[in-house]
């Protein structure tokens, strides 16, 4: 799903795409913690890196939406958009926290 052209998607589909990529990232972040628990540190780090890639895609879509609004095109406010925004923000928060925590655990040999 490279170079997504927002103009070919309905607002609903754009929101679903945001949730999709945030959701994929979220899953990988949880899996990273689980892998770390099992002692698979490299796998944990790899999953976190992959989650950052997913979040990057979500961010790019979101950025295009922000640009559209800034250029005067009205964005329809919908519950689904709120939901997508929630997913993106909360997943970004999770990623930041988990990244920091895993480094902390490594340092403490946990």
């Amino acid at each position: 799903m490279e170079n997504i052209d927002l103009d070919t998607l309905t607002p609903e589909q754009i929101n679903f795409m945001l949730i999709l990529h945030s959701g994929n990232a979220r899953s990988k972040i949880i899996q990273a913690i689980r892998e770390y628990r099992e002692g698979n540190v490299q796998e944990a780090d790899s999953l976190l890196a992959q989650s950052e890639e997913d979040l990057k895609v979500a961010h790019e879509i979101h950025f295009k939406m922000v640009q559209k609004e800034a250029s005067g095109e009205k964005v329809d406010f919908a519950l689904l958009l709120m939901h997508a925004e929630d997913h993106l923000m909360s997943t970004l928060t999770m990623k930041e926290l988990v990244k920091e925590l895993l480094e902390l655990f490594k340092q403490k040999n946990l």
């Binding site: 949730i19 945030s22 979220r26 899953s27 899996q31």
Partner: peptide, 13 residues
């Protein structure tokens, strides 16, 4: 109650 279950990407783990 289901014949099949499909889960969202947020739950894939």
């Amino acid at each position: 109650d289901a014949d099949v279950v499909l889960i969202g990407p947020q739950m894939s783990f």
